[in-house]
């Protein structure tokens, strides 16, 4: 169970992103003209990419932290 946590986190993260992108991206697009539609899509892309970079980095940090804790625990066990 414990080893699957990172994969689960990644999955959850992807689901959130897709949901946000879909909901926000499809909002009222039909009534806009081409330029406004493009503006909207570019805006969505910029925001979603920002979150992806930021949260992706934090995710990586947490995975690193966890592996570090595992190593420390092994050292405690083997050391004494």
């Amino acid at each position: 169970m414990k080893n699957s946590t990172p994969a689960l986190l990644v999955l959850l993260f992807a689901v959130i992103l897709v949901a946000v992108a879909y909901l926000w991206g499809s909002h009222g697009l039909a009534q806009m003209d081409i330029s406004a539609q493009l503006n909207h899509k570019f805006l969505v892309a910029a925001y979603v990419l920002t979150w992806t970079i930021q949260f992706g980095y934090v995710l990586r940090l947490f995975i690193k932290w966890r592996s570090q804790k595992r190593v420390a625990a092994r050292m405690d066990r083997d050391g004494r």
Partner: peptide, 17 residues
């Protein structure tokens, strides 16, 4: 570097429009 990447990604998206 993380924040700078955000700047470099969002900048061109804005610049294109």
């Amino acid at each position: 570097v993380v924040f700078c990447s955000v700047v470099l990604v969002t900048g061109p998206i804005w610049g294109r429009r």
